[in-house]
Computed example of a mutant assay.
Amino acid sequence: MHRIDLAQANAMIEAALTKGTELALKPLTVVVLDAGGHMIACQRQDGASNMRVKLATGKAAGALALGVSSRTIGDMALERPHFIASVDTMGEGGMVPAAGGVIACDADGVVVGAIGITGDTSDNDEACALAGLAAVGLKAKN
Rank of each mutant, 00 (worst) to 15 (best):
T72G: 01
I13D: 04
G58S: 11
A7W: 07
L55K: 05
G94L: 12
G93A: 13
Q43V: 12
D123K: 14
I4S: 08
H2V: 13
R71N: 01
V32C: 06
I4K: 03
M51C: 12
A131W: 05
M12I: 11
V102A: 04
T29C: 10
G132K: 03
K139I: 04
A65F: 05
Q43C: 00
K139P: 03
A35I: 06
A11M: 05
P27L: 07
A129Q: 04
D5N: 15
N10A: 11
L133Y: 06
G58F: 08
N142W: 10
L66W: 09
M39W: 05
E92K: 14
R52G: 01
D120V: 04
G113I: 09
I117S: 06
R52N: 14
A9R: 05
A98T: 07
A77I: 07
A85D: 15
E14A: 13
G74N: 02
V110G: 07
A107R: 09
G58D: 05
K54T: 11
I117R: 07
R71K: 12
T121K: 00
N50G: 01
D88N: 15
G109M: 09
V112G: 00
A63F: 10
D88M: 14
G37F: 10
D75N: 05
E92A: 14
K139F: 12
A131I: 04
T89V: 13
P27Q: 10
D123V: 12
A127D: 01
K19E: 09
A104R: 02
G101N: 02
N50Y: 09
V87K: 12
A99I: 00
A131K: 01
A63W: 00
M51K: 13
V111I: 07
D106M: 01
G47I: 08
P97M: 11
G93V: 10
K26P: 02
A35D: 09
A48W: 08
K54L: 14
T89A: 15
R44F: 09
M39R: 09
Q8K: 13
G137D: 01
A129L: 08
I73V: 14
N142Q: 15
A16Q: 05
G137Q: 00
G94F: 06
V53Y: 10
L133Q: 09
S86D: 14
K19V: 00
A63M: 10
A127R: 01
D123I: 11
K26I: 06
V87S: 10
V68P: 10
T57P: 01
V32P: 05
A7R: 12
T121N: 06
Q8H: 13
G109Y: 10
N124K: 09
A48T: 06
G67T: 08
T29G: 08
T118S: 15
V53R: 12
S122N: 12
R44V: 03
Q45K: 06
G101D: 00
